[in-house]
Nucleic acid binder design. Structure first.
Lengths: 216, 216
DNA sequence: TATTTTTTTTAGACTTGTCTAAATTAATTA
DNA sequence: TAATTAATTTAGACAAGTCTAAAAAAAATA
């Protein structure tokens, strides 16, 4: 249907659009690991196919069919990640690269069966929502732990940084998804946070707090 | 590591070499769905990389490293087929195309975990042996049902034709892998076979018999 | 063995996706 | 608003893999 490469561009644009109004050439180049000149070429092609809205120098948005494809890729990526962690017992910091390949397996029947096989999970191992077969997903309103106030309580629901280093840090300190935590202190000096769950106390930096997404 | 395309050529050569001494340019073209001229180009590249033994006009064989890669692809293909049938409940005539894509997912750790997840199966849904992680497989000596004599008994162990049409025919007539059958009659007129298992009688053509592989 | 047929290879071109370098447009700052 | 800087696009080239048409080699046949 669409090439591996086209799918990656659409996915990258989709993720960028979650943060900003329109995705720029340079942003897309950074996200796809290519150069701006290559991006311009591809944008023309995607616009030709009516998958993006593109006007020179103006950045891009996805058309409905472009977004449908992008969401389909995201669905596959997250379902495969869930499979790798839940069924094959990989750790959550090990699955990204594999899912980057698996998300391009074309069969939608396959992905629907995989979804059912796992009991239609709503979230992937990093807490990101998994779109259903119609592209709908459970978009919870999450906020960075950085913005929690003293004595506020919430549940760790997702992570904003998917790097193995960050995930391994959380794994080691036991700050994992699903934990309910309370802010017991905001350090005056560096504004680091002290968190508490029922069992332990965690002293986390602002950088770590920024990447912990909390359901209040 | 190696491109999708290179892997497909090596796999095609591997399968051809199971039937003949050396694989020819035209055979490879037919197997890969390309033209002879394209094959020649690729053979040069694979020879350059020491994955095949190639001399102009002489056909090719696989080097040890070429064979190792090919067997790895076959392993992946057959394990994914097993997964699709055993876990996701696809029918045996539905899985080939999906496995053609899945066999190129690069991670060997993934395939090893999948292997374990399924309990290290020895055969795929079509009865073909699955290489283990060292490339070794259970190569049973099978013979075509065409060569069975009257009153001879054996077990249907694999199929030589993987086309959906043939597989669906077998499914419908209940001539499935694992069945023990006996030849009760060889029709004089057209040499068609009459088979029997404990429950039913099957009247099969020579064409069908040719593609049923029997463990005597 | 000479000729014909088949197979394989070479030559040159095309497509997809990429790049660098240069040109253009937009944005920022003085 | 003019000048500078940053972002984007264009132009031209390259690599991988494919093709068609023509040439060369091998195999088959007379």
């Amino acid at each position: 249907m669409h090439s591996f490469t086209e799918e990656n561009y659409l996915k990258a644009i989709f993720h960028l659009l979650l943060k900003t109004q329109s995705a720029t050439t340079n942003e897309i180049a950074a996200a796809t690991g290519t150069k701006a000149a290559s991006v311009t070429d591809m944008l023309k092609k995607l616009a030709e196919k009516k998958l993006i809205n593109y006007a020179r120098y103006q950045g891009v948005t996805l058309t409905d069919s472009g977004e449908r494809i992008a969401v389909g890729i995201v669905r596959k990526h997250r379902l495969w990640e869930h499979f790798l962690v839940d069924k094959l017992k990989f750790k959550w910091d090990e699955v990204h690269e594999m899912a980057e390949e698996l998300e391009h397996i074309s069969s939608t029947e396959l992905i629907n069966r995989l979804d059912e096989f796992m009991g239609r999970p709503q979230f992937d191992p990093h807490g990101d929502p998994i779109p259903d077969c119609n592209g709908r997903m459970n978009n919870q309103h999450l906020q960075s732990a950085l913005h929690l106030k003293k004595d506020q309580t919430g549940k760790i629901a997702a992570v904003a940084d998917h790097s193995p280093a960050f995930l391994q840090y959380l794994e080691k300190t036991q700050l994992t998804i699903g934990q309910t935590i309370t802010v017991t202190e905001l350090t005056d000096y560096d504004m680091a946070l002290v968190l508490n769950n029922s069992q332990n106390e965690f002293n986390i930096s602002r950088e770590v707090a920024k990447n912990l997404l909390i359901l209040v």
